[in-house]
């Protein structure tokens, strides 16, 4: 039996992180903002079938960037977690923080123990009955969780996008302003994105049941003005 070379754990972790980051950077980005009537999620996505944004539960949405098969598996696991929890206890007991923690556990576990880390970043967004109860949890490939306030940016060019969105973000925006500033942050300097290249969904605060709603092209165009 051959002796493996010693590789310091710092190096192992760094290699894995670099690998995951590279994978994520290849995909397109995504952003979410809180606005007066709920939470708006917006992704650059020319496909109408391979979704980045989807519904988890009554007031919870999921968004993922990176490898489609990996975040889609996380999405389904989240739906299962939420539906089983709501069935076992009550619909009121399904909360985004527990879900984000579960995601963090799973992704952290895979990052350190499996052959290959996940090349994804995900966002768990939840709309409260009041604006101050809105929640956004950003979970990274290594299982680290950030509690985002006001807006969140995921994906390859997240840093520059974050700067652009931070500049235009204001508390209490309406849907149109929220979408406009998100789209211009996604598009970047001197670029534009049309409705066909966007996937947009809203968690509508006023809704009593399932708050998740996708916006059709026409609706996106109207909001973009």
């Amino acid at each position: 039996m051959s002796m493996p070379f010693y590789v310091p754990p710092e190096q192992v972790m760094k290699d894995r992180a670099d690998f995951a980051q590279k994978g994520i950077a290849r995909g397109r980005s995504l952003a979410a903002v809180e606005f007066t009537d709920g939470v708006l999620l917006c992704a650059e996505n020319p496909s109408r079938n391979l979704r980045k944004i989807s519904e988890i539960y009554d007031r919870i949405a999921f968004a993922g960037v990176g490898r489609y098969n990996e975040y889609d598996q996380l999405r389904i696991a989240g739906i299962r977690h939420a539906d089983v929890k709501g069935y076992t206890y009550s619909r009121d007991d399904v909360d985004p923080q527990a879900l984000a923690n579960q995601y963090a556990q799973m992704m952290g576990q895979i990052f350190t123990h499996e052959t290959k880390p996940l090349e994804v970043e995900i966002l768990v967004a939840a709309v409260g009955f009041r604006r101050e109860d809105d929640r956004m949890f950003h979970v990274r490939y290594d299982g680290s969780v950030t509690d985002e306030d006001g807006f969140a940016v995921l994906g390859g060019e997240a840093e520059s996008m974050r700067e652009r969105l931070a500049a235009s973000y204001a508390e209490g925006m309406d849907a149109a302003t929220a979408l406009q500033s998100t789209v211009s942050a996604l598009a970047g300097e001197d670029e534009t994105l049309s409705a066909e290249e966007l996937e947009v969904a809203i968690l509508d605060r006023a809704d009593k049941g399932r708050c998740f709603r996708r916006l059709e092209n026409g609706e996106i165009e109207t909001l973009l003005g």
Binding site: Q73, Q102, K116
Partner: peptide
Amino acid sequence: MVSGHQPPRYSARRMSLPNF
């Protein structure tokens, strides 16, 4: 979830995020 060496069925050890 990516590799093959996980229990075939869900178990408490796999935390409560059901994954198969």
